Amino acid sequence: AITFRFEGQEKAKKFYEKLMRQNLEATIHIHGDEVHVTVH
């Protein structure tokens, strides 16, 4: 698994949606202002 870190939720959401379109499995974790997107 690879984890990407984002400042702010907007960028993270766009990235997450892009992964979903590519049929990749990903989970999102929100830590205050920092958002972690883990790709499995």
Rank of each mutant, 00 (worst) to 15 (best):
A1P: 11
A1G: 12
A1W: 15
A1Q: 11
I2G: 03
I2Q: 06
I2D: 02
I2L: 09
I2C: 14
I2R: 07
T3E: 04
T3K: 06
F4H: 03
F4D: 01
F4C: 13
R5D: 02
R5L: 07
R5K: 13
R5E: 03
R5A: 06
F6G: 02
F6T: 02
F6W: 02
F6P: 01
F6A: 01
F6V: 02
F6M: 02
F6Y: 02
E7P: 09
E7D: 14
E7V: 13
G8A: 12
G8T: 15
G8K: 09
G8L: 11
Q9L: 15
Q9W: 15
Q9F: 15
E10N: 05
E10T: 06
E10P: 04
E10W: 08
E10Y: 08
E10R: 06
K11D: 14
K11M: 13
K11V: 11
K11C: 15
K11A: 15
A12K: 00
A12F: 04
A12I: 03
K14I: 12
K14C: 07
K14P: 03
K14N: 08
F15K: 00
F15M: 03
F15Q: 01
Y16V: 09
Y16Q: 03
Y16H: 04
Y16D: 00
E17P: 01
E17F: 09
E17G: 04
E17T: 06
E17Q: 11
E17N: 09
K18V: 08
K18G: 07
K18M: 14
L19W: 03
L19K: 02
L19I: 08
M20P: 00
M20S: 04
M20N: 03
M20A: 05
M20Y: 04
R21G: 06
R21F: 07
R21W: 06
Q22W: 15
Q22D: 06
N23R: 08
N23I: 04
N23F: 07
N23L: 07
N23E: 05
N23V: 04
L24G: 03
L24N: 03
E25V: 14
E25F: 15
A26W: 09
A26H: 03
T27N: 05
T27Y: 13
T27W: 10
T27I: 07
T27C: 06
T27V: 07
T27F: 09
I28P: 00
I28S: 01
I28N: 00
H29M: 11
H29W: 13
H29S: 14
I30F: 11
I30R: 07
I30L: 11
H31V: 14
G32L: 06
G32Y: 05
G32W: 05
G32N: 06
D33F: 11
D33N: 14
D33H: 11
E34V: 12
E34A: 07
V35S: 02
V35R: 00
V35A: 04
V35N: 01
V35T: 05
H36G: 02
H36R: 08
H36M: 09
H36K: 05
V37N: 00
V37W: 02
V37I: 10
T38G: 02
T38N: 04
T38I: 14
T38P: 01
T38W: 09
V39L: 13
V39K: 03
V39Y: 12
V39S: 03
V39Q: 03
H40M: 12
H40K: 11
H40W: 15
